[in-house]
Amino acid sequence: MTGIFPLSSRTTKQALTYLILGIVTTFILLPEVWLLVTSLKRNTEYLSPQLTFLPAVPQWANYAQVFTMIPFFNYVRNSLVLGASFTTLCVMSSSLAGYAFARIQAPGKNLLFSIVIALLMIPAIVTVIPQFVIFSQLGLTGTYWPWVLWGIGGSSFHIFLFRQFFMAFPRELEEAAELDGCSPFRVFLEIFLPNAQPVLATSAILNFMWVWSDWFNPLIFLSDANTTLAVKLNYAYVTPQGQQLTPVVLAACVLYVLAPVAMFFFGQKYILQGVVTTGLKG
């Protein structure tokens, strides 16, 4: 792809390309840099009418306050427990269903698969409020059961992801195994799953990041005592006099963001692959 721009000089075009990429990079990175810088300011420095760009003295104590003002690790643990249990169940359920849709013939399969696709389109907002009503009648609000049930139910997005992946396997694989008298479950478990590490990683990372980042569901389904970090850090760092300690909140945000950002850096290949194969936004 060359020559989209009706510009004569090659160098002008290149300069323009890098200029635009530079502008967008600034647009993306500047708010992040400002977060890091501000998380190291004194609260009075942050609230001073005269804007300072860098903290006079970096306040590492803000990061200590993140842990002393609230039991930070309790909320980290809550997020981890929810994330791990949902992720495990959802990956299991979605990979089973995705495999079935890709490799096993049965009457009614096409109809069921069109339901999977339709569910991709049905917004979760239509079901979440009735779910909230049902779960609260059953006494499941304030517990982690909703996440367990959602995990067992799997996700259309991930079923689709697994199906696309398993479709690409050669047919001879399961034919040979079937001749040897393997049951379909053993074929799945011993032949397909060990070769599915990339898609398993993609699915696990995306699921975990979803739970870790989710703000709305823990807010309405959980109570203040057992909620996740996402909900808690948004309002926790307030002095007894009711003053918001913004730099401490920001320090907490930096720590909170570390997990998904680290996952993104290590699992970048898998995440991008997942986003692209399903053609959906992360």
Partner: peptide, 17 residues
């Protein structure tokens, strides 16, 4: 096998959707 494999999702579809 197919219906066994998709049963967790199918139950979820019925009871959660």
């Amino acid at each position: 096998a197919f219906y066994l494999f998709i049963s967790p999702w199918l139950l979820g579809f019925i009871f959660l959707s």
